[in-house]
Simulated scan of single mutants.
Amino acid sequence: MQFKFRASEDRGGADHGWLKTFHTFSFASYYHPQYEQFGCLRVINEDRVAPKTGFPTHPHREAEIFSYIISGELSHKDTMGNVETMKRGDIQMTSGGTGIAHSEYNDHPTNPVHFLQIWALPNKRGLEPKYLTRHFTDERKKDRLAHIVAPVGYEGVQEVRECEGLTPIHAPLHFFASLLSPSKSVTHTLLPSINGKATKKLYIQLIQSSGYNTESAAKDGKNGPLVQISSGAQSAKLGEGDGVFITSGKTGEEVIIENVGNRVGEVVVFEMDDE
């Protein structure tokens, strides 16, 4: 495997007052030719939306879009009649397909909402638009990797509105999350390719849970989580908001994730087939 570290402060982003956001990939007014997408991943925005504000109704098509709620409440409305308020532990998947419009608001009077907004490129065009939700408790993520999103057709995936299983996505993408305690570690074993590809890609990020901060996050672990990512001779240390891009992975290889800081860290792992 090959590791490429990217510091939190090197992400794009902006403070619009009502919205404070970081962009892992080129988005809106932020453009970086080396970070337009990674495998099928096209967008990872770490968003914080102020109370009583949000994104008005806007259209999407030919994109798999899911929100991972970290704190606060996010209210969703769409043109298929779905109305829902999501809280921590909830994950919402919108399969844009031939076209859908939705709005996302923070209707809470005092508390901001913090969430990851993630877009993946679908493996098939012209799909019927769909909206799905799942819930994953903190207990399911505590010092383990909870498998949250998996491709349609993967064992345990059901394309129904609500159930206890994995969240389906029409892309060769798996998504995991862990609440990792200090001195604890988890091991991720790369899964078989669904497209018969020889190599896999991974992107691992430590969520910036301490707050919106455009300066460098603490990297010594004395004031927060610090996560060591390693596989063979390759390694990277992630402070809050940092990420590592991993290429040339193969099925069955292992990546070790260890919290070497002094506070619980929320880690997200994306695994996808190579192009």
Rank of each mutant, 00 (worst) to 15 (best):
K4T: 13
K4D: 14
R6G: 01
R6D: 15
S8D: 15
G13S: 10
D15T: 00
G17Y: 01
G17A: 06
L19E: 09
K20R: 01
T21S: 02
T24E: 09
Q34I: 03
F38Y: 15
R42C: 04
V43H: 03
I44V: 06
A50L: 07
F55Q: 04
F55C: 01
H60V: 08
H60F: 09
E62Y: 14
I69K: 11
I69H: 08
E73Q: 14
E73C: 04
L74H: 04
H76M: 09
K77W: 10
M80I: 11
M86T: 09
K87R: 09
R88S: 09
I91A: 11
I91R: 09
I91P: 15
S95W: 10
G97F: 05
G97S: 06
T98Y: 15
A101S: 12
P109M: 10
H114C: 05
F115N: 02
I118W: 12
I118L: 06
A120S: 07
L121C: 12
K124L: 15
R125C: 02
Y131P: 02
L132Y: 07
T133V: 03
E139S: 13
E139H: 13
K142S: 07
D143Y: 03
V149N: 00
P151C: 07
V152E: 13
Y154T: 12
G156L: 00
G165D: 03
T167D: 12
A171Q: 11
P172F: 04
H174F: 12
F175Y: 08
F176K: 11
L180F: 03
S181G: 02
S181D: 13
K184Y: 12
S185H: 15
V186M: 08
I194R: 06
T199Y: 12
K200I: 05
K200Q: 09
K201Q: 05
L202H: 02
Q205H: 14
I207Q: 03
G211W: 06
S216R: 08
A217H: 12
D220G: 00
G224T: 04
Q228E: 15
I229F: 10
A233G: 04
A233I: 11
S235K: 14
L238I: 05
L238D: 11
E240A: 09
E240D: 12
G243H: 08
F245S: 08
G249W: 03
G249D: 02
G249Y: 15
E254T: 05
V255E: 09
E258P: 05
V260I: 12
G261E: 15
V264T: 12
G265V: 00
V267I: 08
F270S: 14
M272C: 04
D274K: 13
D274W: 03
